[in-house]
């Protein structure tokens, strides 16, 4: 993929993003999927999040393996008690920064 022009790679991502966005506005087959498939699909956001966080939140910050992990835990806790994504992101960056410096 790296031998392709960069703008093309960017546009492929755009197309891949727009397909799931546009389909429900133009087709209504989604209501006809079997319930089991719908249930599987309803779990995808959560299962995606797990795989998105691990293992890269560890690998990205090596050799300080716990720096990202602490940041992720901090973000989780802040959101749990105060529903503000912005605040949890800020706290998370600060925690990770401190872990990297120490």
């Amino acid at each position: 993929m790296k031998n392709l022009p960069m703008y093309l790679i960017v546009l492929v991502a755009g197309v891949a993003t727009m397909i799931p966005r546009f389909i429900p506005f133009y087709l209504s087959f989604l209501n006809k999927f079997p319930p089991f498939v719908k249930r599987c699909m309803s779990f995808l956001p959560v299962t995606a999040i797990g795989a998105l966080i691990f293992p890269y939140t560890i690998l990205d910050f090596l050799p300080v393996w716990y720096a990202g992990l602490l940041g992720v835990i901090a973000a989780f806790l802040v959101s749990l008690f105060k529903q503000s994504m912005l605040l949890s992101i800020i706290v998370s960056v600060i925690v990770t920064y401190i872990a990297l410096l120490v």
Binding site: F61, A67, F76, S79, L80, Q83, M85, I89, S92, L101
Partner: peptide, 22 residues
């Protein structure tokens, strides 16, 4: 170091979404 720390933003965003789902 700060650049690296800002890289946690993405994971923090996911973690915060997960927290709300939880």
């Amino acid at each position: 170091a700060l650049q690296m720390a800002v890289g946690v933003t993405l994971y923090a965003m996911f973690s915060s979404l997960l927290s709300v789902e939880f």
